[in-house]
C-alpha cells in the first residue's frame, strides 16, 4: 500500500478524467438516440467500429488527407447506414405498431450488431490495425509543461497526446451538439419530439422524420467518435462490443437522454474505473475487475436512482 501517495491519486484522477471524456464521446450518439426514439441501440459500438475503419482506409488511400475531414467523412458514412437501417427496420415502431418498442429495438439492433460485426470480419480480416496520432505536438520544455510528439508532461504527469486530441474532439462535438439541439430549428424539433410526440406533431413537426434524423445523427456521432478514437486504441472488428457496454453504463449514469449527462457519466465511469483498478489491493486482479467496478456503480445507480444525474422523470 506504500505506493499510494498524493501524486499517485492525482495521476489516477487525471487518467480517469481523460478516459472519462473519451467514454463520454463514445456515448454521445447513444444518448441522442435514446432521448428521441426512447430505445437503446445495441449496434452503437458497431457504428463506432465502422467509423474507425473508414478513417483508417481513407488515410491509407489518401495519405495527406486532413484528419478532420476524414472524421467528417466517417460521420457521413455511418449517418447513411444509420438512416437506411432506421427507415427499413425502426419505422414501424414510430407508427405505434409495436407492442413493446424497447425490447423490439434491443433485439433488432442486436441482430444488426451481429450482422455488421461479422460482415466486417469477412471484409477487413481479423487482425488489429491502428491509425497514428493525427498531429505531432511541438517539442516544448517549460518545466511544468513539457511536450514531445506523443506525450505531454503536465507537472510530471504523462498524458498521451492522441488522447488529448480525442478529448478535444469530444468536447467540441458535445458543444456543437448542445448548440444544435438548443439553437437550430431542427434541434429544437428533436427536443420537442423527445418531450412530447403528440404535441410536437400538432405544431407541425413530423415525428417519424425526426426519428430517422435522430437515429442517423446518433450513428453519425458514434462513427465520428470511432474515427477520433482509432488513434487511441488498436482497432479490430469486435472493438465495438466493449464500447457499447461502456455507453450503456454512461447513459444510465448521466441520465438517459441528456447530452451533458453523457459527458458527466463518462467522467464518473472513467474515474471509478481508474480508482478501482488503481486501488484494488490484489494487483494481479485489479485490472481483471476493472469493468466490474463500473458495472457495479451502474447497477447501484439503476437501483437507487434509475433516472441518473441529469435524467428527467420517465
Amino acid at each position: 500500500m506504500d505506493y499510494i501517495t498524493g501524486q499517485f491519486l492525482v495521476n489516477l484522477l487525471m487518467n480517469g478524467i481523460l478516459i472519462g471524456l473519451i467514454y463520454g464521446l463514445m456515448a454521445l450518439g447513444l444518448t441522442l438516440i435514446f432521448s428521441v426514439l426512447g430505445i437503446v441501440s445495441f449496434a452503437h459500438g458497431e457504428f463506432y467500429m465502422i467509423g474507425g475503419y473508414v478513417v483508417y482506409y481513407l488515410l491509407q488511400a489518401f495519405g495527406n488527407l486532413e484528419p478532420m475531414i476524414a472524421i467528417l467523412i466517417a460521420g457521413a458514412v455511418t449517418f447513411v447506414i444509420g438512416v437506411i437501417f432506421e427507415l427499413l427496420f425502426l419505422q414501424p415502431m414510430g407508427k405505434g405498431d409495436i407492442e413493446r418498442p424497447g425490447e423490439y429495438a434491443i433485439l433488432l439492433t442486436f441482430g444488426l450488431a451481429f450482422f455488421l460485426q461479422h460482415v466486417m470480419i469477412g471484409i477487413v480480416g481479423p487482425f488489429p490495425t491502428k491509425v497514428d496520432r493525427f498531429y505531432d505536438f511541438a517539442e516544448i520544455d517549460w518545466g511544468w509543461l513539457r511536450m514531445k510528439a506523443a506525450t505531454v508532461w503536465f507537472f510530471d504527469m504523462p498524458i498521451s497526446s492522441s488522447r488529448l486530441i480525442a478529448t478535444g474532439v469530444a468536447v467540441v462535438l458535445t458543444a456543437l451538439m448542445i448548440w444544435f439541439m438548443s439553437k437550430t430549428w431542427t434541434g429544437r424539433g428533436l427536443q420537442a419530439v423527445s418531450q412530447d410526440r403528440q404535441a410536437a406533431s400538432v405544431v407541425g413537426i413530423n415525428p417519424s422524420h425526426m426519428n430517422t434524423l435522430a437515429f442517423g445523427l446518433g450513428t453519425m456521432l458514434a462513427g465520428m467518435s470511432g474515427a477520433a478514437l482509432v488513434t487511441v486504441f488498436a482497432w479490430v472488428p469486435w472493438v465495438g462490443m466493449p464500447a457499447s457496454s461502456k455507453s450503456f453504463i454512461i447513459i444510465v449514469l448521466g441520465g438517459m437522454g441528456s447530452m451533458p449527462g453523457a459527458l458527466l457519466g463518462g467522467l464518473v465511469l472513467g474515474i471509478v474505473e481508474s480508482f478501482g483498478a488503481g486501488l484494488y489491493p490484489d494487483p494481479s486482479k485489479a485490472l481483471a475487475y476493472k469493468d466490474a467496478f463500473g458495472l457495479l456503480v451502474f447497477a447501484l445507480v439503476l437501483l437507487v436512482k434509475p433516472t441518473g444525474f441529469f435524467g428527467r422523470k420517465l
Binding site: V40, G102, F248, I249, V252, F298, A299, L302, L303
Partner: peptide
C-alpha cells in the same frame, strides 16, 4: 423494460 435489460446485463 430497457432498464431491466441493462441491469441484468450488468
Amino acid at each position: 423494460r430497457t432498464y431491466l435489460a441493462l441491469f441484468t446485463i450488468a
